[in-house]
């Protein structure tokens, strides 16, 4: 009796996971299929894997350039963003600040605006100051896009750290900045890692901003992917291979800080 119940439970679990994982499964398996297998109906489950799609993609000179660009832009902008955000979040969490709620509301409201709103102004301004097709522009824009989110997310982690720890550090003769750097930050490292990943996933996957602001030298992977969707059809082989490849790093990172991710995504509202 108990066993049938358990069996039913696991069957249900499998169905739920199937729904949520089928696109991933399709993506990865298609990247190893040739064209005819990829679009066969009924879907082909057993096939001879081909590495041709990956070879095609890796042979492109712009693939590794785009990969390096994506990596560089997402890492640097996220790092900068976290530096700024952690300082701000620390202050919001620990200092007595008048109108703190208003400040948080202001920060939150800058998250509400659709990215498409700032795209045109930023583009035209960038042209005027000669910043188009530069890493700096993309890094600054992505940093700003992530900043509100990162501040709010870190705030929840910092608020969890008991005030006594900070006071104890003062007693030991640490300055405010030293306390922040060598006491608080290490304690919150799980949360910081989660914030880092979530901010980075956003930059890593972002399409529209990069499409408009990036150029030849700064093209990122999501934009490269859409160049497989041509006027004369989608090149599914390279597209799925790149799609799989682009997801891997985020998947590994994401899984490694899974525990903190949940909390971070909800901005700590769940306690």
């Amino acid at each position: 009796m108990v066993r049938t119940k358990t069996t039913f439970f696991y069957a249900g679990a499998v169905i739920i996971l199937l729904f949520f994982l089928s696109p991933l499964f399709w993506l990865v398996s298609t990247s190893f299929k040739n064209y005819k297998d990829a679009f066969a109906v009924p879907p082909v489950l057993i096939f001879t894997p081909t590495f041709e799609n990956y070879q095609n993609v890796f042979a492109r000179s712009d693939f590794f350039a785009a990969f390096a660009n994506s990596l560089m832009i997402s890492v640097v902008s996220t790092l900068l963003c976290l530096c700024l955000a952690s300082i701000t979040a620390y202050a919001l969490a620990n200092f007595p600040i008048r109108k703190k709620m208003n400040m948080i509301t202001f920060i939150l409201s800058s998250r509400v605006a659709p990215p498409i709103l700032m795209l045109l102004p930023v583009y035209f301004i960038a042209v005027k100051v000669g910043l188009t097709d530069s890493y700096l522009l993309l890094i600054i824009v992505y940093m700003l896009m992530n900043l509100p989110f990162a501040i709010l997310m870190l705030l929840t982690f910092f608020e969890d750290i008991p005030g006594e720890i900070r006071e104890a550090a003062f007693v030991d003769g640490c300055s405010e900045f030293k306390t922040f750097l060598s006491v608080i930050l290490p304690i919150a490292r799980g949360g910081i890692a989660a914030t880092f990943i979530l901010s980075m996933v956003f930059v890593w996957n972002e399409f529209l901003i990069s499409l408009v602001l990036a150029g030849k030298t700064t093209q990122t992977l999501p934009v490269l992917i859409t160049s497989f969707m041509t006027f004369q059809g989608t090149e599914w082989g390279p597209l799925t291979a790149t799609g799989t490849f682009i997801m891997l790093p985020m998947l590994i990172f994401g899984l490694s800080v899974q525990k903190h991710l949940v909390k971070g995504m909800t901005m700590g509202a769940v306690k």
């Binding site: 499409l211 150029g215 030849k216 030298t217 093209q219 934009v223 859409t226 160049s227 969707m229 006027f231």
Partner: peptide, 9 residues
């Protein structure tokens, strides 16, 4: 310097 983007964009 070649920059290749989809036709729609």
């Amino acid at each position: 310097n070649l920059e290749i983007v989809p036709y729609s964009d």
